[in-house]
C-alpha cells in the first residue's frame, strides 16, 4: 500500500470555554494517499471544519500526531513550518467573507507571493496571469473588486490564491455550498481538473452527500468530533455500516419521481460536544443502541477491506 501524504493519528482539538471543554475533534485517525481526495461529511457542529483547520495548522492540535510527507508537523521549526504552509493550503466556504473587500483580484491572488519578498513586480504579474488562467478567469477582471464578482468567480479567486505556491495538499471547506447548482458544477469540475493537472491531494469537507460522492476517493463520516465510518467512496454508498451513516444517507431527498420507501428519520439532534460522556456518542439517537453502547469506548474496526466502522454492533447488524 502506498504511504500517505497526510496522516493523522489520535488527533484531538479541544477548546476551553466557560461551560466546559469542547471536544471539537476527539481522537481522529486517517491517512490520505497522494493524488487522492478524502471527503469528510457530517452535520454542522460535528467538528469537520476544525479538523480541516488543524490539518493545515491554522489551529494547533491539543493531542495526537499529524504527519505531512512523513514528517511530524507539530515538531516543525519556524522555517520548516513556513514551507509546510506553502504546501498545505485551504479554500473556504464563503467567498463573500474570505476575500478582502478592498483588494482587487490581482492583489488578492498575488498577496501570498508578495509577502515572501522573493518576487519582482513583473514576476508577480506574470504569475497572477498564469493563476487566473488556471482557474478560468478572464484577464479583464484583474482590477475588479470582490463585490463586482458573482459567487462562482469569487470562489475562483479563492482557488487561484490557494494555488499561488503550487501546494501539494488543499483542504476544501464547503467550497461549493454557497453556490447555485449550475455554478457549483463549474467549480467542482475545475477542482477535478486542477487535481489531475497538478497532482493535488484534497481533503474535501462538506455536508452535501451527492457532492462528496462525486468528488471523493475515500469518505470519512464524522459525528461529534469522531470518525464513525471510513470507506472507499462507492462502497460507503453501496453498503453503509454505521447506523448514523445509514440515517444520513436515507435522509437525502431523492431527485425524481421514484419516491423513497419509508426512510429512517433520526429522532433528536446532535448532542453537545462539551465534556461528552464515554461510550458511543451516537447512542442517544441510535435506533439499535444497547446499554453497553453507553459504556464501552470505541475505535474504528475493519468491517471489510478498507472499510472501517466504529460500532459494537456493526458486524451483527450488517451480517458480516
Amino acid at each position: 500500500m502506498e504511504s500517505s501524504l497526510v496522516e493523522a493519528s489520535g488527533l484531538k482539538k479541544h477548546f476551553r470555554t466557560k461551560k466546559g471543554i469542547v471536544h471539537a475533534v476527539d481522537g481522529v485517525s486517517f491517512g490520505i494517499r497522494p493524488g487522492k481526495t478524502m471527503g469528510i461529511v457530517g452535520e454542522s457542529g460535528c467538528g469537520k471544519s476544525t479538523l480541516g483547520r488543524v490539518l493545515v495548522h491554522l489551529e494547533s492540535n491539543t493531542d495526537g500526531a499529524m504527519r505531512f510527507g512523513g514528517r511530524d508537523v507539530t515538531a516543525l521549526g519556524k522555517r520548516q513550518l513556513r514551507e509546510f504552509r506553502q504546501n498545505a493550503q485551504m479554500i473556504f466556504q464563503d467567498p463573500y467573507s474570505s476575500l478582502n473587500p478592498r483588494y482587487t483580484v490581482e492583489e488578492t491572488i498575488a498577496e501570498p507571493l508578495f509577502l515572501s519578498r522573493r518576487y519582482s513586480r513583473a514576476e508577480l504579474r506574470q504569475r497572477t496571469t498564469e493563476l487566473m488562467g488556471c482557474v478560468g478567469m478572464a484577464q479583464r477582471l484583474r482590477a475588479s473588486y470582490p463585490h463586482e464578482l458573482d459567487g462562482g468567480r469569487r470562489q475562483r479567486v479563492g482557488i487561484a490564491r490557494a494555488l499561488a505556491y503550487d501546494p501539494k495538499f488543499i483542504v476544501c471547506d464547503e467550497p461549493v455550498s454557497a453556490l447555485d447548482v449550475s455554478i457549483q458544477a463549474q467549480i467542482l469540475n475545475l477542482l477535478q481538473d486542477l487535481k489531475k493537472e497538478k497532482n493535488l491531494t484534497y481533503m474535501f469537507i462538506t455536508h452535501d452527500l451527492s457532492v462528496v460522492r462525486y468528488i471523493s476517493d475515500d469518505i470519512g463520516v464524522m459525528y461529534l468530533g469522531q470518525l464513525v465510518e471510513t470507506s472507499p467512496s462507492k462502497e460507503l454508498f453501496k453498503a453503509p455500516c454505521h447506523p448514523y451513516t445509514k440515517a444520513l444517507l436515507s435522509a437525502i431527498p431523492h431527485i425524481g419521481v421514484r419516491r423513497r420507501a419509508e426512510r429512517a428519520v433520526l429522532k433528536g439532534e446532535i448532542t453537545s460536544p462539551i465534556d461528552p460522556k464515554p461510550g458511543c456518542r451516537f447512542a442517544s439517537r441510535c435506533p439499535h443502541a444497547l446499554g453497553e453502547c453507553q459504556r464501552r469506548s470505541l475505535a474504528l474496526e475493519e468491517a471489510a477491506p478498507g472499510h472501517f466502522v466504529s460500532c459494537i454492533r456493526a458486524k451483527e447488524l450488517n451480517g458480516l
Binding site: S44, A251, P253, V265, E269, I270
Partner: peptide, 9 residues
C-alpha cells in the same frame, strides 16, 4: 442539516 431537514419535511 439533512437529518433535521428530513424531520421538518
Amino acid at each position: 442539516d439533512v437529518t433535521i431537514q428530513a424531520q421538518v419535511l
